[in-house]
Design a binder for these strands. Structure first.
Lengths: 145, 145
DNA sequence: CCAATATAAATGCAACTGCATCTATAGGTG
DNA sequence: CACCTATAGATGCAGTTGCATTTATATTGG
């Protein structure tokens, strides 16, 4: 069918490799501090941002780009760890709402210190502000439906 | 410790999200044609590039950025599928060499058609050649050790 | 040559993921 | 209301991954 240009292939390889290496770097930093993974961080952050109201799992899965069952089980683990709480939902008897606990907030903050540090050395170090903006622009142009 | 600039955080989010979505898109295309995953493709390609000599698993794991046990098991599965062959290594009794079979070559080519197509719509479509080059440049600057 | 250490690869076990399905409630439509 | 379909969430099972360890061979230093 289609034959990609050499530039396309190079861009794809570069994107794949660098994003994987960066993610690994961040995950390694977290693990080195005996902290949970990026997935937990993202989840805690979204839930924290939802505030007192909490957030429904089906909303969460859209924001986190996770499959439904993945979200269900991830929330289960985070719940077991005491970082969030589940509350029955008044408007919808099928579902519920999750809220962050103070332990959750605390852990998220702790993770952020490590995470932020990794981002500084991994992204902010090698790139200028202009390049960072350029990257955002390219990524947004590329984002599929 | 360090406080990332807003641009850093945005760039990180954009990079994470877009790369995930693109990978998903490619994986979905492959799955929709009942073909194996990207990991298999990359592995087959590396092994095919190694040619008649074949390649040692420990080399492969470096190129594929996979952990040792992951490589070991992935090769096991690909072997079972008859896409590669294992040959004892003369110079090193601990290890062996893998070579692609003709079925392997055939499957890789088939996968490439689908893969290439996804790259064309996913990357080449939204970006110009100049932007693709820019992306390579940014990714290379960013690549961690 | 031997002992100590390093490297290649495999594997047992527990945790995690994907797929398909299941349960329960919600929201229509006649 | 009775029925049909759609959506929220959970879960059984098989396959995969991660971690730690094991096995086997290679390499180095005495």
């Amino acid at each position: 069918m289609s034959v990609p240009k050499i530039e396309t292939i190079e861009a794809w390889k570069a994107l794949l490799t660098t994003s994987r290496l960066l993610i690994e770097k961040v995950e390694d930093s977290l693990a080195a501090s005996s902290l949970p993974s990026l997935a937990w961080y993202d989840t805690l952050l979204e839930i924290e941002k939802a505030g007192k109201e909490g957030i429904r799992p089906y909303k969460l899965k859209e924001r986190l780009l996770l499959p439904q069952y993945g979200t269900s089980r991830l929330l289960g683990r985070i719940l077991t760890a005491g970082l969030i709480e589940k509350h029955d939902c008044d408007e919808d008897g099928r579902g519920f709402v999750v809220r962050i606990t103070s332990r959750g907030r605390q852990l998220r903050r702790k993770m952020w210190r490590v995470y932020a540090n990794a981002l500084c050395t991994g992204l902010e170090g090698p790139l200028t502000v202009g390049e960072l903006k350029l990257l955002v622009d390219l990524m947004q142009k590329t984002r599929p439906a």
